[in-house]
Amino acid sequence: MVRVVAVPQQGIDPKLICLACSATAISKTLCLGWEAMYGMVDDSDICFNYGVALSELGRVEESLVR
């Protein structure tokens, strides 16, 4: 399976959207968003938030390894 994030040329950065969503609640969908970006970009914010999302969803071991 290949997961991608489509970024329109003049659209909002998906990282900002996910960050805004993280402020309210962590969901599986949001976690998928972080996961997709985690696989594509080396960004410490993305790695951190992906780890937090995994931990919040009960995947604690995985959050440490990722």
């Binding site: 790695c47 780890g51 931990s55 604690v60 071991e61 990722r66």
Partner: peptide, 26 residues
Amino acid sequence: MNKCLKLDLSYDNAAIAIGVSLSKLK
């Protein structure tokens, strides 16, 4: 979290998050 610290060792919140996760795992 591991990758986060590899990318940026000074990412302070990552250390907290790792600590919290370890605590969750007892």
